[in-house]
Amino acid sequence: MKRYFTARMLGVHILALLTIVACLALSRWQWTRAHVHTSMSATSGEFTSLSPLGNYLPLGSVGAQTEVQGTWSRSGRFFVTERPTHGPSLINPNRGSTAVVSWAVPIGAWVCDVLILEDGSAIGVVRGWSENPQAVPPAKGMATVAGILQSSEDADYVSLVLLPELLTTNLVLSHSDVSVHDGYLVSSQPPRGLSAVDPIYTAAPKTSLHMRNVIYTANWIFFALLIVAMWLRVVRDSVKGAITL
C-alpha cells in the first residue's frame, strides 16, 4: 500500500485530481455557454415582473414593455460608449448570422441614469443616444418611465470589431448605492436632445443549444476520462517499477 503513497506518487495523485476537477469545471462552463438566446419568439413578450432582487431577469420579461415609477438617483448618470445611432446595430442577437457594423453611422453613447423605485431598489435606464453625451444634463426628480426590459448584454452577441463596452447589470450596480434589478430598461420616450435607442429584444428570446459548446462540453468530459486512464497507467507502471517518476 505504501508504494502508492510515496512523495512523488502523492504529487501524481494531487495533479491528477486537480486536472480532473478542472476539466469537469470547464465542461460545466461550456454547458452553460451552450445555452444561448438565439431568436425571439413570435409573440410579443408579456410583462411578468422586474427581476426579483438578487435574481436574473425572468426570460419571459426580456423584451417586455413596462412602466416604472421612481426618483432619478443623483449620482446615477453614466454612459455606454461607442454606440451607433439606435444602438443595437452592432449587437447581434442571432448568433451565426453576420454582425453588420456600418462605418457610416455616427458613433455616440447611450446616456443612462439609475431610477430608484418606490421600494428603495433601483433599475438602470437607457434614456437615449447622443453623439455628445456630456452635454445632456443628468436626470433628476421623480419620473414615470415607459420602456422595454432587456437582459445584460452578452459579449457573444457583440461583434468584436469595435470592442464596445457592454451594458450589464454589474455596470448599473457600479453606479448605484442601492440594490439593482437585473437587466436594464430602454426608455421608449427619450427626453429632448436624445434619440431613441432600439432595444435588442422586442420579444422574449428563445433558448436553444449552441452545438459548438455542446461538443466542447463532451470534449472536456473526454479529457477528464483520459486523465483518469493516464493516472491509472502511471500508478500501475511505477508500482511495477516499469517507469520511474
Partner: peptide, 24 residues
C-alpha cells in the same frame, strides 16, 4: 470570425469541432 465580423459560421464551427476531437 472576429476581425472580419462573420461570427460563428457552420464551416468554422465544424473546423473547431474537428480540432476538438483531433486534439484528444
Amino acid at each position: 470570425e472576429y476581425l472580419l465580423g462573420h461570427g460563428k459560421t457552420a464551416l468554422t464551427t465544424a473546423a473547431w469541432t474537428a480540432h476538438g476531437w483531433l486534439f484528444p
